[in-house]
Write a protein that binds this DNA or RNA. Structure first.
Lengths: 343, 343
DNA sequence: CCTGGCACTCGATCTCAGTGAGTGCCAACT
DNA sequence: AGTTGGCACTCACTGAGATCGAGTGCCAGG
């Protein structure tokens, strides 16, 4: 079946181009891979593949290079899951097992991922929105200053200082605390916010004691829960790998470096996490930013069970080792998920 | 006085080289600057300057380029303080005034600094060690889980969870809390650590109730105070400016990118903050890392009065606009200091 | 001590032919 | 129909001059 062989040729082209970084010609192809046909036949196949838009030649009389469409075909239909080497597995374990808290897990993950893939790694901190409230605490630093502490099921602790215009009696504080606990504990973020807002008395009733405190504390809590900084926090690592881009510098690295500092952009780039097991690959111009047309993103969701808490992945040139990268991303995501489950 | 003119020539060479990025010759020099002498004279001066090691030529029959020593002379004796434009001052105000908390101040500063200087900016989070303890709080989440909260004079809040093997009575908790407050409140970090450690009963006396809790809590507090992550945290911004390096890529940018992710390295690079008003310039090979021989660091301490809390600065190529950069660094440090004072 | 003049150096740029990897096409073979 | 060997063609890349010119060092005269 010549159709099968054409795909084999495409796969071979992608693999060779990724490893050599040079346009690949028909002769080198038959030599390096065990296709049992002559260069001329391969040339015919390549002509067809080019016709169909999977490969192109930078200039006449040069080898072929995969297009975005070619890479897409490659990752969709031509890759087989490449298991990690045991050395890599060991590296993952030893790297992540020492983590002491959530931040540490994320930071280690980003480091690990960038080293495994030799690309720029991006790990989103677990999102608050799908976690639940474990505990709420009020501490009166002075009668007019309250420390509001919010502890979430992810282990994240947020705190806010609230200043009151008038002192709050200990009794009122205790009442408020118990009401908060009753409403919020165990709830998911969204529900907790709704419940807390309902606690705030309507303006008319504002005369009752502690009304100001209730409003301010609820406000602080809600703000902490939907805090954008927490939702949007990401860790980035391995930027030094950008130095390997060598050619195409201003065109590729500069916009990428800029994107790496814009966490909002980064998150958009990582995209919505597919279901936890799926690794998403976005190739070149498929992404949302024109400037990053020559970069690909390999990402996946991670976190307990089906409710993936956050996203992690890597950003690299379209010319990358997709099978290896996908395997690494998947493995790290799984391992991180397991660690979060245990904690 | 020909000595004076030689220095003027050096200054002119530095200025021209910084702006054009090309070796500067005698003819261009007399044309662009108002030195009232002929190119031949300038050539003689340049010969002397080269003899003395202030400048060098990349190859025969090319213009001259400043050496590290030349830049050093330039920043030490040839720069006049360049006041910021009012536009820049306005930019600083509007950029920093909206900050809501300490983290925000640091993040805004780093952004601002990188934009002002068009270099990579580095801002150290204020160090704990010279701040004082404002408050300590214990919250019993359950009888066996304590949340330890530490609030410092810088506004930083650290919290730790402590797990106990046996429940702690409310009375013991209250006693412990008041003892902690008595010992720590208002103390500088170092003193507080010493005082707290003294609270821990010797092993022999460990039988008394709450001994385990005291030990664990004190341990957690001390750990939080001397937490390396807090001491070593830095914010980095403007890495996209590295793309302007263009030439000399692998040699200069790669090690720098690596350094930017090693916060410990970065801090060493920033160096001990000189007294708050002084801007420190470290040129090329003067720094502690060989790989960064072609980069300079402009840094200064910031923070209230003489006890500078932390360091901020920029990292860039030795070929940079020192006067402008120094002015920007100084201005940002002053402004940040003022904001921290107000808070 | 400054200046104009002058010979010299040498990196940068251009041209140009040679090379070779790679292609497309065609006729012959299975 | 699909595969193969042959063959002419294209064109980026390379290296060898040749040329250019910015910049220098030196020297003799002001």
């Amino acid at each position: 079946m010549q159709e099968d062989r054409r795909l084999a040729v495409l796969r071979a082209i992608v693999e060779d181009y990724v490893s050599t970084e040079e346009p690949v010609g028909s002769k080198a192809l038959v030599e390096r891979h065990g296709l049992g046909v002559s260069p001329a036949t391969v040339r015919n196949d390549m002509a067809v593949l080019e016709e169909e838009g999977y490969i192109t030649q930078p200039h006449t009389s040069a080898g072929r290079v995969p297009t975005d469409k070619g890479y897409r075909m490659f990752v969709d239909r031509l890759t087989t899951v490449k298991p990690l080497s045991s050395a890599e597995k060991r590296a993952i374990s030893s790297f992540l097992d020492g983590a002491v808290d959530l931040d540490d897990v994320v930071q280690r993950s980003v480091r690990l991922l960038s080293q495994l893939t030799r690309q720029v790694a991006v790990v989103q901190y677990p999102t608050l929105s799908s976690s639940t409230v474990r505990h709420v605490e009020l501490v009166a630093l002075t009668p007019e200053r309250l420390l509001v502490v919010l502890i979430l099921s992810t282990g994240r602790v947020e705190q806010r200082l609230v200043e009151l215009s008038s002192p709050l009696a200990d009794d009122d504080l205790a009442t408020l605390r118990s009401r908060l606990l009753l409403v919020a504990t165990g709830q998911r973020i969204a529900d907790a916010v709704a419940g807390l807002r309902a606690l705030v008395p309507a303006d008319d009733a504002a005369a009752q004691p502690g009304a100001e405190a209730t409003g301010a504390v609820v406000e602080a809590l809600c703000e902490a829960m939907s805090d954008h900084r927490s939702d949007h926090r990401v860790a980035v690592g391995g930027a030094a790998n950008l130095a390997r881009y060598g050619d195409s510098f201003d065109s590729a690295v500069r916009p990428l470096l800029e994107a790496l500092e814009e966490h909002v952009v980064l998150l958009k780039l990582l995209g919505e996490a597919g279901s936890s097991g799926m690794v998403t690959v976005r190739i070149g111009a498929e992404g949302p930013y024109e400037e990053l047309a020559s970069t690909s993103v390999v990402s996946t969701g991670y976190g307990p069970e089906d409710q993936s808490l956050a996203t992690l992945g890597i950003v690299g040139p379209t010319r990358m080792d997709y099978p290896g990268t996908m395997a690494a991303v998947r493995a790290v995501a799984r391992y991180v998920t397991r660690i979060l489950d245990e904690a």
